[in-house]
Structure formats: C-alpha cells, structure tokens
Design a binder for these strands. Structure first.
Lengths: 255, 255
DNA sequence: CGATGGATTGAACTGGTTCAAGTGGAGTGG
DNA sequence: CCACTCCACTTGAACCAGTTCAATCCATCG
C-alpha cells in the first residue's frame, strides 16, 4: 500500500497539534509536549510534505509481528501512524529489556550504524510509515526543519531515557510502577479521549516487567498492592483507573 | 579566559581522529568511533571554525565543582576539552543515578527545554568550552554539518543509554561491573596511551555504584571477586589492569 | 600524630526473584 | 451450549543477590 492512497494529512494522526507554522523547531518542539504531538513531518509545509511523501511507504503489521530486529541491516526508519510498538534489547540467554513504548507520532529506526541496535515489535495492530534511511537523510538536508524536528525528537527521547535510567537504577518496585502509570498517562492517550484518569495499557504484564526491570510476579503484586491502597482500579488487564493520581505521584518519587 | 588565547586547533583534543574532510556526517560519524573521536566541531573547515569560535568561552573547573545543575536555566551547552565529567539525576531523598561519564570531545547541556534535566560535575580538573544555547542553535543552521554532527553524537549517546538500560534492568552485579570496565576501556583512553589493558577510572567507587545501580559495598566486593578470579589487577583505586579481557567479556554478557 | 574520608570487609537482613500452584476469560469444537 | 484447552495473570512460600549496618583499613593532610 503506497502513500498515494492517502491524502497527505493522513500521515498525521487525527488530533495532532500542528506546529507546522512555527519554524523554530529547535526550541518550539521541546516544550514538553507528549511525543505523539510532534510527529516527524508536521513541520513541513503542504508543498514540502507532498515532495517528502513520495519516499514514504505505508505498511501495516498485526499485533506481535516484528517490524525490525536487533542486528538487521537498518534500511528504513519508521513513523507510527496508529497503534503501539515496543522497542527492546536482549541478552544471549533471553533476558530482555524493553527500552521504550512508542505510539502514534513517534519514529524509530534511525540508527547510528548500519544495523538496528534494537528490536521493534507491534504490540497492537499498527499502521506505520516506512522511509528508506538514505532518503530520509537526504530529506533532512533538503528540508532542514525536518532534520531539526528529528533532532528535537531524539533529544526528547534521550531525556526520557535518562529518567528511565534513574527509575531502573534507583527506584523500588512500587515507585517504578507508579512512575510508569503516570508516564504512560502523559505520553499516550487514545485519541479523542479527554479523561486522563483512565490509562490504557496495550502491553502485557510481562512487557511492563521487562520495561521496569522486574518480574511479572512483582508487577502483579504491585498492581494488587496499589488496588488495595485504593489508588487504582483495574478494568480488565489493559485498563487502569487512577483513583488518586496525587498519591501515585508521591509514591513514584518516594516521598 | 576566552578562546582567543588558544589557536583553533586547541579546541580539539590532541590526538583526535579528524573527520573534517568528510562531509557526510550523518553516516560517517557513526561508524562506532569512541565518542571522544568525534568532537562537536571537528567537522568544520578552518574558516568556519574561526567564525564559530567567536561564540565560545573557555572555562576551567576543578574536581568536584558543579558545571550545571538539574533545574537551572539551560543557558549554555558545553564541550569537554580535557578531563572527565559525570552527569547525574537525583531523587528528592538523595538517591542518585549517574547517567553518563563524559570525556574529552563529548558535549552536554543541549537540553530539550529551558532547564537542564541533569547535573554535570567535574570528576577531575576539566577544561570545557561554553557556548550560549541560542548561539549554538544559530550555528547549527549556519553550519549544517555542525548540526548534523551534534545530531549524530546525540544518536550515539542514545544508543549507549539503551545499552545502559539493558545493564541496569537485567544484568547482575558482576555482569554490570565487567560491562562497565570494558565500556570505559572503549570510550576513554588517556591520550597517547596505546595500552588498552590498563583502564583508568577517574571516578570514585560511589560514582561507579551510582552509575551501575548498585552500592559501594557491592562494587568493592565485585572488584575483589574479579581480582581473586585473576581477571583484573588493581593499581591504586583509579587504575585497573585487565589481565583477561576475554573472560571479562564473557562475564559481561552472562555466558 | 590525630583527623578525615574513601575503600574494604564482615554479618545480618530484606525486597524482589524463583518456583509452584491456582484462577479466569477467550477461543474451539463436539 | 457446555466442556475443554490455552494462556495471561495472580497468589503463595521459599530463597537469595544485593543491601544495610557496623567495624576496620589506610592514604592523605593539616
């Protein structure tokens, strides 16, 4: 399926905050917007977007499919249109660390070398744009705003990984889960859903465990612990109601 | 002290591999070179470097001094000329996570927002270049190779943090220390010292602990453990001789 | 020469893991 | 429509890697 079957705006997710009019992306894109609000190419003018879209291929993957694998040659970069993706690294004996969950607007695969340094898998069914690596780099030169935007998004991601290192290295299981719930609430809300007390968790318990450096059992115990404290309610496995976000926030930081 | 008291090449560390002739920094800078080999501005021609150097202020800090603090307004970015710097984040109760050790050639402080998201402190006496944030962003536009280089270096750093997340979340104490020794060997060699079996550790045991998500005591016990296995030798607190790097490599990955 | 502070060592303790059993919802097919 | 299976999740109980607390070492410095 080529991009030509969509109009150009289809590349942006429905309710995305447009920043296209603002040229100073080095600063503006970094005001703390959740990453899905700053999709790679919504800095481009309609004209540039038209040119740019010629190098894009739209693809779909269903849940659990691998999009790219650690060690594969990094031929493409990807921009998520809909759905959720997990990024992970593995040790030879199978221990896994999920380094990030990505949602609509996020991009991935812009590796430093000619091999992907991580595996990306679809958590839900996803629609993603695939862009040949060589061509995206050309585009960064041709449309400097695009390169700046990618740089901005990379710096935001780097900052998030620093926060996650603090979590992994120094927080307790309870603090980790509370931080996670609040972070997901901030980063990912199903579109057109204003209510931010309901958090959607498309990933499995074992994904959460591998993201927080814990085991499934510990995750499960912490969920029940928070439930017994009256701070959350569970609606099935993939929905959490934050009954007391302030309490969660306090628990997340350990004070 | 202004940069005018140095000739321009003083901005680069002594034995740095020059990549200035190579324009295609989006790809070339990413061949896996240790980061000190790809200092921010060694993509610039002598002419551009001259112009660029006008916005640089050289400063010195002695060991243990703070260069910038988490939460401060991010007015400057910094490029290390000599010495070692630690980047850290803290929880309110004092628990600390060091997110990186930086050496000659590395830059830091290019925050996403108008506040630094971490604290940078001198480990040894350091010489650093300070560049006003607004001006470096101008320079990225004026000298696109410079912006690309900064982007490249940021992506390399991001990749390293992913590796560190795997370490923090999933490795044992022994695996962590072995990985650390090998990573430092790869990233930082005192200039003009070819022998890569001697690793210089300018940081304290507690810095190492806070980098690996462990306690000082555990670090100490792991050092003695590796010594008793005959894999390392300790020459004072800040020098380690790798007697059997292959064994360390095997221990680092858990196989 | 005593004081200071990083580093090491020892011994008890514990948060999170491991292993094992149980639960419940979704899908299948008889 | 129920029985059966599967699989993700939860719960329980024993265990252990790494922490905590406490003592000691030792190099440096005034």
């Amino acid at each position: 399926m080529s991009v030509s079957s969509y109009n150009f705006s289809s590349f942006r997710s429905g309710s995305v905050v447009r920043l296209a009019a603002d040229n100073s992306s080095y600063n503006a894109a970094c005001g703390g917007c959740p990453s899905r609000h700053i999709s790679l190419c919504n800095v481009l003018s309609a004209r540039d977007l038209k040119k740019f879209s010629e190098i894009i291929t739209d693809i779909r993957k269903s849940a659990k499919q691998v999009i790219c694998a650690e060690g594969d040659e990094s031929g493409n970069i990807y921009n998520i249109r809909t759905g959720a993706v997990r990024i992970s690294k593995m040790l030879s004996d199978g221990r896994r660390q999920i380094t990030g969950f990505l949602f609509a607007g996020d991009f991935f695969g812009l590796s430093c070398r000619n091999k992907y340094s991580y595996t990306a898998e679809a958590i839900t069914d996803v629609e993603i744009c695939s862009i040949p690596r060589a061509k995206i780099i050309d585009s960064f030169r041709k449309f400097p705003e695009l390169g700046e935007r990618a740089f901005d998004m990379t710096r935001i991601e780097l900052e998030a990984t620093h926060e996650q290192m603090l979590l992994l290295g120094r927080k307790t299981a309870r603090e980790k889960l509370c931080s996670f719930l609040l972070a997901i609430r901030g980063k990912y809300k199903p579109l057109d859903q204003g209510d931010d007390t309901i958090v959607d968790l498309p990933m499995s318990r074992s994904d959460i465990a591998d993201f927080l450096g814990l085991t499934v059992e510990t995750i499960s115990r912490q969920f029940t612990g928070l439930y017994r404290l009256g701070h959350i309610e569970l609606e099935g496995f993939h929905k959490v109601v934050l009954k007391d976000a302030d309490a969660l926030f306090a628990l997340a930081e350990g004070d």
